[in-house]
Design a protein around this nucleic acid. Sequence first.
DNA 1: CATGAATGAGCCTTCATTCAT
DNA 2: TATGAATGAAGGCTCATTCAT
Lengths: 202, 202, 202, 202
Amino acid sequence: MVEAVKQKGNNEKRRRILDGALKAFAKKGFYNTKVSEIASEAGVADGTIYLYFKNKDDLLISLFEDRMEWIIERLSSEMEQTDGGFAEKLALFIRLHFMLVLENQDLAEFITVELRQSAKFVKEYSNPKFGDYLKMLQGLLEQAQQAGELRQELDARLVSRAIFGALDEVLLQLSLSTKLDVAEVERRTAMLSDMFIGGLAP
Amino acid sequence: MVEAVKQKGNNEKRRRILDGALKAFAKKGFYNTKVSEIASEAGVADGTIYLYFKNKDDLLISLFEDRMEWIIERLSSEMEQTDGGFAEKLALFIRLHFMLVLENQDLAEFITVELRQSAKFVKEYSNPKFGDYLKMLQGLLEQAQQAGELRQELDARLVSRAIFGALDEVLLQLSLSTKLDVAEVERRTAMLSDMFIGGLAP
Amino acid sequence: MVEAVKQKGNNEKRRRILDGALKAFAKKGFYNTKVSEIASEAGVADGTIYLYFKNKDDLLISLFEDRMEWIIERLSSEMEQTDGGFAEKLALFIRLHFMLVLENQDLAEFITVELRQSAKFVKEYSNPKFGDYLKMLQGLLEQAQQAGELRQELDARLVSRAIFGALDEVLLQLSLSTKLDVAEVERRTAMLSDMFIGGLAP
Amino acid sequence: MVEAVKQKGNNEKRRRILDGALKAFAKKGFYNTKVSEIASEAGVADGTIYLYFKNKDDLLISLFEDRMEWIIERLSSEMEQTDGGFAEKLALFIRLHFMLVLENQDLAEFITVELRQSAKFVKEYSNPKFGDYLKMLQGLLEQAQQAGELRQELDARLVSRAIFGALDEVLLQLSLSTKLDVAEVERRTAMLSDMFIGGLAP
DNA sequence: CATGAATGAGCCTTCATTCAT
DNA sequence: TATGAATGAAGGCTCATTCAT
């Protein structure tokens, strides 16, 4: 019981720090955020952060892992529900991606802005969770190819990258706009699905 | 005459600084690059940089402007040559985007990695040149719509964003790979054009 | 009875902390040793140390007192056994000093390296036990003077300092050598006694 | 000319930093001295110190080298003047050691208190200048042995250590006393020489 | 008594920027 | 213009100490 409480305490504090970091990174970016700002946002002392994370880089990486894991879990559990065809599934995937991320605007800014930097400049970090995300999308595409619902000549790996890039860029623009209109998000979601499935040509 | 020479001298040194900055930013990212490293790469004294640029942020912005301007000029002059239909034009645009940027791998890394950060965190900078780039692509799409070669119901602005995002993401992956195979670049170029024009559905 | 047991418990834990501190200080020096390292070495929690010692400085001082007291006790009880002349007594004193300290190499490093620092920088500490040690040596010298076995014109206080300094420096070198050869220790012991008694001149 | 001035400027600033460090280290010890205190003592900005020294450790080591070099130079040039016998030479050596170091009380405290610590805890530093100092004394002893003025059976290396230790300990006590009486220093100098040459026995 | 998670003051070091030459 | 030594504000991180359990 004491164990459980203590464990909870630990996790609760770790969570508060991650939340504070997300908020701070989204607002000012990784390099412009002071550790002390994260601490104050999380309501802990500066030093406490170093009880849960090795250093500022580790905090960034951990935040990625945590949020990507959350996104992947939500995405896959929601995707399992559908038994529609590829077009419905892709549309759902795109909608979910947008909805999940925009549910928390800070998350949207964080993912779209910091993901690339980190991939390249945080030492020795290959961002496995992001790889998992891409594999999920790639899996969807490969299944569609096997079912004859996606053109065989397209490289699923390349296409998954392209789709993610398109979503991410559109999301970036959305996340930077001051007010988010759900209807507008739905409109873009639908149009992107339509574009990817049907192509640009009439 | 003296003016001209002086001007030339200025431009030459300014250019060396921009080139050094590109190299350094590409390798280590904006925040991990020291001004002194740029100076040393450019073969000038640290202080000299401040004769040509207000500060490190201004150097970053100027570098964007400079490179985007170059890309836009090259793109538009090349695009003018073609009188093919929309499909050919889009294919050419994608090929040119890839080729221009991959001509200089540093440029590729710089564009794909730093563009977003800067957009958000360099104070009071709206990145007009990037806007020009997008407008160019958007213009291409709008012309196609007027010519009936692109579906009317698609929002050209949104689509241009999506295309740029897809290209950028694929380019990021390409730019991070250690060796660049021209044939592979061509393959991806063709497949992306095909995907955008024809859509994913068979 | 309960008191006694408790007292014993206290002393045992206090002793473990002092032992841990000695080991840690000898290896890394006072300022490079973390309180948590001492705690871990002693097998107690960090906070426990503060139940037995006011702070890190107090722990250092207490360790000195403890070890010097031990050395003085051992030295005086052993010295009482002898009834030889001054030469024999001094030789014995030197041998005992070496043997006692080298019995525990950590103690040797601690005494030779940390004694001076502490004397000067631990606030308001006059190092009384070290004073006792010197007084013991000084007493030996004064007795010898009264017995006519030591030159009257020498200042016993100054000579005791000089002898301690010589022993300490030689011990420092010995304690820093990786392996300790008993025969070598004996050789140096004898030579130092001989040098002090007989002088350098032939 | 400009070169010379610049060089002078460099050396002058480096010297001021070393002087400031000596003063600060002597007063509060290495670990209790802040880099900013050294900077303020030297009349330079904090960052300037890092233009001349790699870090705080390097500053400590450089200070040792500098001061030991100075002592060795002064000692050897003065020793060359004498053509007396061993007894005179040793007496002179002792007197010079005391005088040189006590000329600057800060130097005395620094040498006696910090030398040992550093030897052990500043990583990978074998203190070559201190080795030079000891070799000088050892050389003096070996010459005396060849001239038959020092007992053959004594190990010059061990004896040089012992003499240094004795001098250093006595110096420590002297340097910690608030006022230094030249007559008193002379008295101790003479007595130590006498003790070492003639031995303790009557 | 014992614990060890939490605290937060403190410090070394970096690096963008300035300015005397 | 060009230099590069000097500046000093700023911040990541450590660790002695506390205190709720």
